[in-house]
Amino acid sequence: MALKQLSDPLIDKNPVAVHILGICSALAVTTSMSTALTMSVALTVVVTLAAGIISAIRVHIPNQIRIILQLTIIATLVIVADQLLQAFAFGMSQRLTVFVSLIATNCIVLGRTEAYAMHNPPVPAMLDAMGNGLGYSLVLMVVAAIRELFGAGTLFGFQVLATQAEGGWFVPLRLMLLAPSAFIILGLLIWALRAWRPWLAEAREFALREAKPEARP
């Protein structure tokens, strides 16, 4: 049971590719793998803790103010995480600039607390949250790997493909560092996912029919 909550969101219920949550940061921070990794770790920690706390007090949260209460708790965790990052990993926090703060607005966090943590006990809620965080991390790392490798020829900062600027053969595809490429890579990733797991494809709203060839006189 526990393992299912951790493993489902990795592929079958991946928050980014299946539930369409957390897209904004998936576009913005995937230009390099190290920033993607920091964002992934930060988001996983925040969402797990938030799910745990909100689940613990869920019985006492009045319905009318539930969103504001959840947001307050999430934002507090994000501000603390941001301050910790600035204090102990200043170089990385400079590179991430506002995106750590934007974890507070990441749909995955509020989406999971609203959909799951509000209605389930703390331990399953935290496992579900951690699973979603890991699913998000997986997508982010894959996209970042593609974008960094083809956009700059590096992986985690290590030069893998020798660029022409350094006397090699590789001409970096600068489009990879622009956001449209993130959209397109995500689109292709979803296509691959749905080709592998056909049951993930969306139900058609109406049936497409093959046009019958008209009889010619």
Partner: peptide, 13 residues
């Protein structure tokens, strides 16, 4: 597999 969300992402790009 491309129908729906996949195509939407590419259009957004």
């Amino acid at each position: 597999g491309l129908e729906g969300l996949g195509a939407a992402f590419i259009v957004a790009g």
